[in-house]
């Protein structure tokens, strides 16, 4: 029986993820929530884990495996970039400007804000 325990843990973790995902979809759908179903599921699981107090071993295992495979999971959607036809050159240039300039701008403003808030708040320094 000992040998089956890791498998049982793993299946339990997978069942929790699947259950939360389905429950989130169901709630989002039935209550016409604006929040995507999987995100409702994530919040449910987070709330559950905070009440439970720790992360069950099997759940931690399945989660880290799934998150390591993320790139594979969104590969079909990513491949679609090569098949986009309805955007013109202006759109592509605008997207390029928004993602490069915009990202660096919001990134810098974000860092400056947090730096100022941490200094004013007198938090311990985090240089490493």
């Amino acid at each position: 029986m000992e040998a089956f325990r890791p498998i049982a843990h793993w299946l339990g973790g997978a069942a929790i993820l699947l259950g939360c995902s389905l429950l989130g979809d169901l709630l989002s759908d039935r209550l016409s929530l604006p929040v995507p179903g999987p995100v409702v599921g994530m919040l449910l699981l987070l709330a559950g884990l905070m009440i439970y107090g720790s992360v069950p071993r099997g759940l931690a295992l399945v989660s880290s495996q799934l998150l390591r495979l993320l790139a594979l999971l969104f590969l079909p959607a990513a491949t679609g970039v090569f098949f986009l036809r309805h955007l013109d050159a202006t759109d592509w240039l605008a997207i390029l400007a928004a993602t490069t300039v915009g990202t660096l701008l919001s990134f810098t403003l974000c860092a400056l804000l947090l730096k100022k808030l941490l200094r004013d708040g007198g938090g311990e320094r985090g240089d490493g």
């Binding site: 997978a14 993820l17 699947l18 939360c20 995902s21 389905l22 989130g24 979809d25 995507p36 179903g37 999987p38 995100v39 599921g41 994530m42 919040l43 699981l45 987070l46 884990l49 992360v55 759940l59 931690a60 399945v62 989660s63 880290s64 799934l66 998150l67 495979l69 993320l70 999971l73 969104f74």
Partner: peptide, 11 residues
């Protein structure tokens, strides 16, 4: 599997 992967971010 994308749905369960979003849920897994809670961990």
């Amino acid at each position: 599997l994308l749905g369960p992967a979003v849920v897994a971010l809670a961990v």
